Amino acid sequence: MNQDYLIEALAPLVFRSGKPFGAQAGVDGAAFPLPSSLAGLLRTLYADQQKAEFSEDLRKIPVAGPLLARRDADGKTRPLAPRPADALYLKDGGLTRVVRLSPGPLPQDTGCDLREDLLPLRMTERLDGKPVPGPQFWPLDRLMEWGAGVTVEFRTLETEGLGALAAEERTHVALDDTTLASDDGRLFQTGGIDLAPCQEAGTWQQHDLVFLARTEIKLNSTLATFGGERRLSRLHGRATGGWPGHPGDLEAKILAAKGLRLSLATPAIFAEGHLPGWLDQKTLVGSPPACPALSLKLRAVAVERWLPVSGWDLAKHQPRAMRKAVAAGAVYWFELLNVPAPGFLDTLWLKPVSDHAQDRLDGFGLALPGAWNPIAHQ
Rank of each mutant, 00 (worst) to 15 (best):
T156R: 07
T190V: 08
W243Y: 07
D117F: 03
E145C: 03
L6I: 00
L88A: 06
W312P: 08
A328V: 01
L127H: 06
G163C: 00
G242A: 12
V326F: 13
F364V: 01
G241W: 06
V210L: 08
V63Q: 10
A174L: 12
A201E: 12
T215E: 11
H172F: 14
L45R: 09
A174C: 06
R305V: 04
G75D: 15
A85C: 11
H317L: 11
I269R: 09
P352M: 01
D72T: 02
F270W: 10
F21E: 14
T283C: 11
G237R: 04
K19Y: 11
G343W: 06
R261T: 01
H172R: 09
G311W: 11
Q189I: 02
A321S: 13
E158C: 15
Q49Y: 08
W372E: 12
W312I: 05
S287Q: 09
L180T: 06
M1W: 10
Q24H: 07
R320N: 05
R70T: 01
A201W: 09
G286D: 09
G242Y: 05
L162G: 07
L262D: 09
V14Q: 15
S287R: 06
T225E: 07
E251C: 04
L337F: 08
L38Y: 12
D113V: 05
R70W: 02
T44H: 13
K91N: 08
E169Y: 05
L255Y: 07
P33F: 03
L80D: 15
R16T: 08
S36N: 03
K60P: 01
L45I: 08
L294D: 11
S233L: 03
Q136E: 15
E56N: 11
W333E: 10
P84K: 02
V14R: 03
A256V: 02
W278V: 00
T240D: 15
L42V: 07
F364Q: 08
R126S: 13
L262R: 03
T240V: 07
P247T: 00
L119Q: 15
W372N: 09
A239R: 02
R16M: 06
A252P: 01
K316A: 09
D48S: 03
A9Y: 02
M322L: 10
K91C: 05
V63C: 09
L264H: 09
S310Q: 10
L260G: 10
R234M: 12
A213Q: 11
